[in-house]
Design a protein around this nucleic acid. Structure first.
Lengths: 248, 248
DNA sequence: CGGCATTTTGATAACCATCAAGACGTGTGG
DNA sequence: CCACACGTCTTGATGGTTATCAAAATGCCG
C-alpha cells in the first residue's frame, strides 16, 4: 500500500510494458527487497559465474553489460538506467555469459529470484511484463549489431546519442534540453566498437556541425532532425509505446 | 500421442531448455499447426509490420533476421535452423522491429499465438522453456555485438564458423566432418559486418592455413583447436547444456 | 598544490572498402 | 547438346576510414 517503496520506479516501467492491475502493483510493491550501493566500475556479475539467488534492478545510477575478446578488447553490449533489470536472465540461466558493471555510483534493489518467479507464475500480467521487457532488450541488441556492423563512426555515435536521449527521456532523466551522459569517451568507444581517440574526433565533428553540444559530459541535442538523420535513428526498435500486444 | 507430429523437433529443442513432462509434450504435440513452404529469400516478416496472429518455427531449411541502415546497408543479426522459433517475440510486441527472411527453401509450421499463449500460461514448464529460448537468443546477440564490434575480420569469420558448427551439431545437421553452410559469401559478410570481397580473401586465408576446408558451400573444420583460438570462441554463450536453472 | 584520469591533438600505418573485371558454376531455353 | 544469362566467387589496384602510438592539455579530487 505504501506509495513509495523502492520498487515504485520498476513497477512504473513494467506498467509501460503490460497492463498491471492494482493487485499486481500491490504484489510487486510488497515484494521484499534489500538495497545495495556500489562504487563506479564495481562488478555485479562476472562471466562464467553461476547464477545468483538474487535478481536486481537499478534504483539510481547507471550500469552496463560487457564482454571481452580473448585478447582483452572490451565491448559494451548494453547500458542501463534506473528501473532496468540487471540480471534478470539469471532467473533461468545457470551461468552468466557476460559481465555486468556499475557505470556510475549505483544503487540497486535485490529481490529473491524465487519470489519473483513465484510472482510471475501466480500473476500472469507480471510474468508477461517481465518477459516483454526482455524482448525489448533483445530488440535493442539487434539494433546495436546493426549499428556496430554497418554504420560508420559518425553515424554510430549519432545513433547511440539518439538512443540515450530517448531512453533518458522515458526514464525521466533529462534536464531541460540535455542529459548527463555518464560515460567517458573510452566507454562510449567500447559501446560502438571504436577507439576513444576516434570517438573524440567524431564527437567534435558533430559539435562543429552544430548538431549537439557537449560540455563536461552534459549532452544537449541542438538539431534533433539533423542528428537523427546522421545516425539513421528511428525509435521504433525501443517499443516505447504500444509495446504490449492486446491480450487475445 | 502420435510420435511424429511436425512439432517433434521443436519439442525436442524446448525439452533441452527446460524439463517437460509427458503431459507438456503431449499438449505441444497436439497443438494444431499448418505447414507452409517458402522460396529462398522470401520475407516472413517485414520491419514495421504489425504482429501476426500466427507464430512459426522452422521444420526444414534456414532463415535469418536482418535490418537495414537508412542508406540500405544490410546487417544480418541472426541465422536460424530447424527447430528455431522465428517470430516468437510477436507473441508480445505489436510491431516487427526487423525483417525475417528465408535463407534457403524453407518449410515452417505456423501455430496460433493465442493457443501458444494459453498453453504457456496453463503449463508453466512450456512458458518457461519458450522464455529461456528467448534468453539464449539474447545471449547470442550479445556475442554478435562483441564479434562485430571488437574482432578483426579473420577472428569474426572464424567465430561465426565455430558457432554454426556447434549449433548445427546440436540441431543434428552435421554430415561426418562438416556441414552445409547455407550462405553466400555476401550473406556471410552481412552477418559479420564485412564486404563479400573481404570475406572471400579472409576465408581463403583460413583455408590456406589448414584450419578449414571449404568446397562448394560445404564447410569442414580441420583444426578445431586452431579455429577456436583464431575466433576466440567458447560455446558458453550458447547455453547448450544445463541451460535451465533448477526450479527453486 | 600534486596526482591521476580523461580529453585532445598530431603523425603514421593497418585494415578493410571500393571499384573493376574476369572466372567459374548452374540453370534455362533454343 | 550448346549457347547464353545470371549469380557467385575470385583477383588486382587503389583509397578511405579507423587504429595505433605518442605526448601534451585539461579537468578533477584529495
Amino acid at each position: 500500500m505504501s506509495s513509495s517503496t523502492p520498487n515504485e520506479r520498476m513497477i512504473e516501467k513494467l506498467a509501460r510494458r503490460a497492463t498491471l492491475d492494482p493487485d499486481d502493483r500491490a504484489a510487486l510493491a510488497e515484494m521484499p527487497c534489500t538495497l545495495r550501493t556500489l562504487q563506479a566500475s564495481a562488478y555485479l556479475l562476472r562471466e562464467g559465474e553461476p547464477a545468483r539467488l538474487n535478481c536486481s534492478y537499478i534504483l539510481s545510477g547507471f550500469a552496463f553489460r560487457q564482454k571481452l575478446t580473448a585478447e582483452g578488447a572490451r565491448q559494451i553490449v548494453s547500458v542501463h538506467m534506473p528501473g532496468d533489470f540487471l540480471d534478470f536472465q539469471h532467473l533461468f540461466l545457470r551461468v552468466a555469459d557476460h559481465n555486468v558493471q556499475a557505470l556510475t555510483r549505483l544503487t540497486i534493489a535485490e529481490i529473491s529470484c524465487e519470489v519473483l518467479q513465484e510472482l510471475a507464475l501466480a500473476r500472469p500480467a507480471i510474468g508477461r511484463a517481465i518477459w516483454i521487457d526482455g524482448l525489448i532488450e533483445a530488440s535493442i541488441y539487434r539494433e546495436w549489431i546493426l549499428n556496430v556492423g554497418r554504420r560508420d563512426a559518425r553515424a554510430r555515435i549519432a545513433h547511440i546519442l539518439c538512443e540515450f536521449a530517448v531512453r533518458m527521456r522515458a526514464a525521466g532523466m533529462v534536464n531541460d534540453n540535455g542529459y548527463e551522459l555518464p560515460m567517458t569517451q573510452e566507454q562510449l568507444g567500447d559501446a560502438v566498437g571504436l577507439t576513444s581517440v576516434h570517438v573524440n574526433r567524431t564527437l567534435k565533428g558533430l559539435v562543429a556541425d552544430g548538431l549537439v553540444r557537449f560540455d563536461r559530459r552534459n549532452l544537449s541535442i541542438l538539431d534533433w532532425d539533423g542528428i537523427r538523420e546522421v545516425g539513421g535513428f528511428s525509435s521504433m526498435y525501443l517499443h516505447l509505446d504500444q509495446s504490449s500486444r492486446p491480450i487475445p
